[in-house]
């Protein structure tokens, strides 16, 4: 049974956690893609930036969290989300909107977003250095050990506070986004604009407002994902680097321009990563005597140092077999 617990800890929980992070990022990318029609490469840096905002706020008011019984960074999350959303809106005003006004090809916007990536990375490293930090300043990470009610299992299932908060946040965020897109006037305007921008404009939709709202949603989701991930692991400027490829893969796997697809894509990529670096020999070990071949010590599909190849190959496979993604994406 210990093997099963190991599997739950290393695959189910960590897959769900990293999958939620990817999903939150991919939803933002897919929204920007469907409204503004370009791949926003600076998204992973918005995530890092959001985490750094949360870090600053935590450092400013370290006592709030313990008073409420929650991690301080989580209490500060709404503020960090707001700041990141504001940054995203102004980044758009400063760098993307003038290019859109000139009517450039979408690929030029992609390039501009890479320029923004470099600027954000440079700024973050300039002010924060390159070392990793913990988002817990005055409080400690709560770790829950759940004992499994079976004999033979003496190892507990381990789950941490930020992981629970992340899953809760994802559920709330998805429901809120769903209600927003289907019920509110602005959400309907967004969907209309993603279907046909010209038609949306002539039917009186304020497209500028829709663009702003898109950046607000994408920016705040990115900040939340970045903060919750750094709460769980640690805060590094390299964070964006590890996230960039998986979140794009998630958005494309789900079908670009399809928010629910992005959600599913995030979990597909997350679980694919954890399943492929998982050492299957652990699960097979109890059946060691029945096997016809000698069990190697390490039977992982991908060594951990090649983890980054997993989203890439999923991306390639999707591009070859089903370029519209699992859920038919609109724009291609």
């Amino acid at each position: 049974m210990n093997e099963l617990v190991f599997f739950i800890n290393n695959v189910l929980i960590s897959g769900a956690v990293i999958g939620s992070i990817y999903a939150l990022g991919a939803v933002g990318i897919t929204l920007i893609f469907s409204i503004l029609r370009f791949a926003h490469f600076a998204h992973a840096d918005l995530m890092t930036l959001g985490a750094f905002f949360a870090f600053f706020l935590t450092a400013l008011f370290p006592a709030i969290g313990p008073a409420l019984g929650l991690p301080t960074a989580f209490v500060m999350l709404p503020l960090a989300m707001g700041l990141t959303a504001l940054t995203a809106v102004y980044l758009d005003k400063a760098f993307y909107k003038p290019l859109r006004a000139q009517g450039v090809k979408p690929i030029v916007l992609v390039m501009a977003s890479l320029g923004v990536t470099l600027m954000l990375q440079g700024l973050i490293r300039m002010f924060m250095g390159t070392s990793s930090r913990s988002l817990y300043i005055d409080d400690r990470k709560g770790i829950h050990r759940i004992d499994v009610p079976f004999e033979l299992a003496n190892r507990p299932i381990v789950i941490t506070d930020p992981q629970i908060l992340l899953i809760l946040f994802l559920v709330v965020a998805v429901i809120a986004l769903h209600l927003f897109l289907t019920r509110s006037k602005l959400g309907k305007a967004m969907r209309a604009m993603s279907d046909n921008p010209d038609l949306a404009r002539v039917s009186g939709i304020n497209t500028q407002k829709v663009v702003t709202v898109t950046w607000i949603i994408a920016g705040s989701l990115a900040a939340a994902a970045g903060t919750l991930l750094s709460l769980d692991v640690s805060l590094k400027p390299d964070l964006s680097f590890m996230l960039l490829l998986p979140i794009f893969a998630a958005a494309i796997v789900g079908g670009v321009g399809h928010p629910y697809g992005a959600l599913a894509g995030g979990f597909v990529i997350g679980f694919a990563e954890t399943l492929s670096v998982f050492n299957w020999a652990v699960l097979l070990r109890p059946f060691r005597d029945q096997l016809w071949f000698e069990l190697p010590a390490n039977l992982a599909f991908v060594p951990t140092e090649y983890k980054i190849t997993v989203p890439f190959f999923i991306l390639l496979a999707i591009l070859v077999w089903r370029p519209t993604g699992l859920f038919k994406g609109k724009v291609l």
């Binding site: 470099l118 990375q121 700024l123």
Partner: peptide, 11 residues
Amino acid sequence: ARVFTIGLIIT
């Protein structure tokens, strides 16, 4: 700062 400058020049 060099990284930042490259990004700024591109944009």
